[in-house]
Amino acid sequence: MGFRAAAVCMMLLAWTGMAAAFQPDPPEMGTAQTLPLAPLTVETRKGRVALQVQVADTDTTRQTGLMYRTSMPEREGMLFIFPHVHPVAFWMKNTILPLDIIFVDAAGRIMNIAAGTTPFSLRPITSDGPTKAVLELNAGASARLGIGVGDRVVFEPLVRLP
């Protein structure tokens, strides 16, 4: 009887620990990264949209992304560049700002947009296909700037990558 009770307690402790592992950390637990800004253009149906982006092109910068950021100017964002083209998924853990997450294929075309994502959500946000880059903007920016599926992202270092 004592062994069974101990086993149940251990299971409850393990389950509680696992549940805690999936909870968002409070914002004060981390530090926002700041990367240099680079120009990026989106060719839309209505014309060109000029943006400034921070480029996350290493494992570390891609993993941190816009976590812990409390504000971002309207025409700024972050561009995640992947070394290989493949389907990707993002989440909003430790991300305070609601974002538009824009998935870009190897040709620079926007495949899909997850508009107005929920801060701190652990729900996977997936690309509609093999992805070369992801552009994150403030929530609603893609609609306000006229950026849509099929538009082309022009970023010189992205064009040169295999």
Rank of each mutant, 00 (worst) to 15 (best):
L158W: 05
L99F: 05
P73L: 02
A56W: 03
E28R: 11
R4S: 03
S127C: 01
A21C: 13
R69A: 15
L122F: 08
I113C: 01
M78A: 11
T64L: 14
D128E: 04
D105R: 08
G116N: 14
I125T: 12
A115D: 14
M18P: 01
F103C: 02
P26V: 08
G116Q: 11
A50L: 07
A89V: 00
M10H: 02
A115C: 12
Q54E: 15
P98T: 15
S127R: 02
P73K: 02
W15E: 13
G150N: 15
L161R: 00
E136Q: 07
I125D: 12
A6C: 04
P27I: 13
A141S: 13
A50C: 05
E136T: 04
S142G: 07
Q33F: 04
L122Y: 06
V134L: 05
T60E: 11
F90E: 01
V49W: 05
M92R: 05
A107K: 04
L99Q: 06
L99M: 06
E136K: 03
F155K: 08
G148D: 15
A6W: 06
W91H: 02
A133G: 06
G47R: 01
A133Q: 05
Y68H: 15
E74N: 14
Q52Y: 09
F80W: 13
V42L: 10
S121M: 02
Q63F: 13
P87M: 09
A38C: 05
D151N: 15
G65I: 02
L97D: 07
G77M: 12
P124A: 11
P98F: 12
L12Y: 06
V53L: 13
D25M: 04
E76I: 12
G77S: 14
N94W: 01
I81D: 05
V85A: 09
F82M: 00
D59R: 04
A89N: 01
L37H: 02
F155V: 12
F80G: 11
L79S: 00
V134F: 07
T60V: 04
P83H: 00
A133Y: 03
E28K: 10
L137R: 12
R4N: 02
M111P: 00
P36L: 00
